[in-house]
Every structure is written in structure tokens, then in C-alpha cells.
Amino acid sequence: MMKVAVIGANGKIGQHLVEQMQHAKTHEVIAVVRKEAQQKALQERGLTAKLADLEGPVSELKSLLKDVDAVVFTAGSGGNTGDDKTLLVDLDGAVKTIEAAEASGVKRFVMVSAWQSNNRENWAEDLRPYYAAKHYADRELMRSKLSWTIVRPGALTDEEATGKVVVGDSLAPGTVPREDVASVLRRCLDENGTEFRAFDLMAGESEVEQSLQSMKEMA
């Protein structure tokens, strides 16, 4: 059993992931949020919840991640903020978390990115600052000493999970329910062959576990 810190546990994907991990009981989950009210709500559900400001110093994140085995980074500035917050949270917040994880002895890091963030030619014109933030945060993670996985989901929906997805190095554009994204993140912690892999994720026809196992054949 690993001790897993979910950064951005109050986000839409983060909420699904924390709930799934609490139910599965395969790992000890630490829900990391920004506001005290969020922390209190999670604690009332019996979860370990800690506060962190991704715009704060790396030293605070380092203390937070002490004795943690794995990090899942699901945080984001959100669609209602400006490009400044995209830079400070989606890029610098992610990089500071990577630095803190390395300094704290964390071994595993799973990153939520965006479809084709690795391929500038496919960036959505109206989301270029967001895509640039994801691109360089992913690059810093790949340069780190951590055992990393980068999940690049398509357009996110709040539809009910189907449990069926498709993964690949370069998928056509599409959508995927946030709840299914959370399932993929959770399974990445356990599925051998997902380490040091970055992949697109969409709704598909295969079970999550089967899809992730198929990456071994793609390697």
C-alpha cells in the first residue's frame, strides 16, 4: 500500500479520484486542497486532508510530501481565471510540486495533462497559454528523477463513467468523462508498464485495465 497525495483534490477529476481511492482502500490517500472549508468537508468524510498553496514556496510543498510514496497532480487554475493563473498554477505550481516530490523522496508521479499537449500543431488556438503550460510542465516531469506517467485526456465531460476508454500516443480528438479519467489515474498507480509513458486518453471500447495493459505492446 502506498501513501498517495492527490494535488487538487477538490477539482472535478480530483474529487472522483479521492472518492474512488477511499472506496477501493488499496492505497492511503491524502487529499490536498487550497481552502480550509474544502479540507474540513473532506475530513468529515473520514479522509486525511491537507492544505497547500501552489503559489507558495517549494519548502511548504516539500514538508507536505514528507513520507509520501506517490503524487497524482490533478490541480488546475480553472477556465474562469486569466493567463497569469494558468502560468502560476498549471505550470509553476506543477513544477514546484515536481521539485518538492524529488526533494522529499517521492518515487511515483502521475500528471494530468491535456490531449496532444506534446504536439504544438494540435493545440487549440483559444487555449494556447494553457497548452503551453501543460507542455512545459510535462517536459519538466520527464526531465525529473521521478517514475512518471503523463495522462493527456481529451475534452472533459461530466457524463457518467462508462469504464471504457482508449489510450494511445496520438489519438483523434474526442471526449472522455472525468470519472473515467480518475479511474485511469488510479490504475496507473498499480499497472506495471505505465511508468515513463505519456499518452492520450479518450472514451473508447476497452476496459481501463485492458487499455493500460495494451501500452506494454505499444512500447
Rank of each mutant, 00 (worst) to 15 (best):
L61W: 02
L61M: 12
K62C: 10
K62N: 13
S63A: 14
S63L: 12
L64I: 09
L64A: 07
L64R: 06
L65W: 06
L65M: 09
L65R: 15
L65D: 09
K66S: 13
K66Q: 08
K66V: 11
K66P: 02
K66W: 08
D67K: 01
D67Q: 03
D67R: 05
V68G: 02
D69L: 10
A70T: 07
V71M: 10
V71W: 07
V71F: 03
V72H: 04
V72P: 04
V72E: 07
V72M: 15
F73D: 09
F73R: 06
F73S: 08
F73E: 11
T74N: 04
T74K: 00
A75R: 04
G76E: 05
G76S: 05
G76W: 01
G76T: 11
S77T: 07
G78A: 09
G79W: 14
G79S: 09
N80Y: 08
N80K: 15
N80A: 15
T81Y: 15
T81M: 04
D83Q: 06
D83W: 14
D84S: 07
D84C: 11
T86E: 14
T86Y: 00
T86C: 15
L87M: 10
L87D: 05
L87F: 10
L87G: 03
L88V: 06
L88A: 01
L88R: 13
V89I: 08
V89G: 02
V89K: 02
D90Q: 13
D90R: 02
L91G: 13
L91V: 12
L91F: 07
L91A: 10
D92S: 05
G93Y: 00
G93W: 02
